[in-house]
Design a protein around this nucleic acid. Structure first.
Lengths: 204, 204
DNA sequence: CGATTTAAAGACCAATTGGTCTATATATCG
DNA sequence: CGATATATAGACCAATTGGTCTTTAAATCG
């Protein structure tokens, strides 16, 4: 028996903008420009909010950034949960996972980069809130990849001597490195071949 | 018969500070804080120069940054030239190369990060001068690693099916990814084992 | 309606930004 | 010495920074 929401229903003019959409637009700005290079006017333009509304809704620039980062991380983990779904064939899942990174690392997307990697480099060392999120993301990603590799091993699809947890760490470093190298817009075909070559070292 | 330097010897008070040392100190600041987060007073404090001297010697913040970046790149390439010296055994060279990255990715060094990766993420997409330097560095690194792998292959030290140029691209992505993951200060022993596991997939 | 709440617009703020310029001291030359 | 060149210290600048606050309009309620 689910209760109706117990909060007092608000009495005045209701909120007229979509907070999540605003976070998403702000995320886009931080993603393209980085934290320090993003100025308030950029965020106001992107969210189409007034200064007052933005500060009322999010507190300050840093809090809004954390919301945007959380959104980015959640999106990435959701994507991985689809690609590496335990009901799929694990090697196919790993291929999809790598192909996704190759895709995001090529051309304009590649040049735009990755909010997570950029944030790791720009803030993770100095900002504890950010640092915890970045570390948590890498851990979560590694766990998912390791799990997929484990299932591949169970299905006897892994090459001799490949240990899932170790190979997972290799793959995590590799894909994050892809995001770095992708800033110089290498050719898609090259990246895809590189990713394939790495995975081929792991599978039977 | 080498001529004396043909430039007019300067007539006034000679420069009394070491330009290269100033670049190196500035590099340290950019390295620790990133480009946008570095303010002029930070650079003046680090270089112990007055505003006037700094602008006279380097033009502006951006030019000084490029000098610092060039210095960082030159140092990195010099290091690689030693580690991957053709007169050394190539696999030992590759081990030294990876061990160097593991070392720089652990603990305080790891948390400080890598000026090159941070710059790639912060500026490479928007700043053409920076973009060219980053792309050039990755290309130079890849060439050196590929060369070492080629020599290893000639010495029949490579596992079956390992292609030097492809494996070099994998290693470049891997080490740059290490620098990203290193921002969350993972354990040295884990990173070393991960690097070893990767290299072991390539050698016979 | 009137009370309440939120929105947008923009004035306003102190602090900081990158950068210029002046004054003055100092070091080297012929 | 006098000319030349460079150093430092710091005043100064317009523009921008993140952030607050006030005003006014709109939207919902009882």
């Amino acid at each position: 028996m689910s209760r109706q929401t117990p909060v007092q229903l608000p009495r005045g003019r209701p909120r007229s903008f979509d907070v999540d959409a605003a976070v998403e637009r702000a995320m886009g700005v931080f993603w393209s420009r980085g934290y320090h290079a993003t100025a308030l006017p950029d965020l106001l333009r992107a969210t189409k909010l007034s200064r007052g509304s933005l500060y009322a809704a999010f507190g300050d620039k840093h809090s809004l950034f954390l919301r945007a980062l959380d959104r980015y991380i959640a999106d990435a983990l959701t994507r991985m949960d689809i690609e590496l779904d335990p009901r799929r064939e694990p090697v196919a899942g790993l291929r999809a996972y790598l192909a996704g990174y190759v895709d995001r690392t090529t051309g304009a997307k590649g040049r735009r980069g990755c909010l997570l990697v950029a944030t790791a480099m720009e803030l993770a060392g100095q900002d504890a809130e950010v640092g915890r999120r970045i570390a948590g993301f890498f851990k979560a990603m590694e766990a998912r990849v390791a799990d997929a590799l484990s299932r591949a091993k169970t299905a006897d699809k892994l090459a001799d001597g490949v240990e899932p947890s170790s190979a997972a760490r290799i793959l995590v470093c590799f894909v994050e490195g892809l995001r770095v190298v992708g800033k110089t817009a290498p050719r898609r075909i090259t990246l895809q071949a590189t990713a394939d070559a790495l995975l081929d070292r792991f599978i039977r």
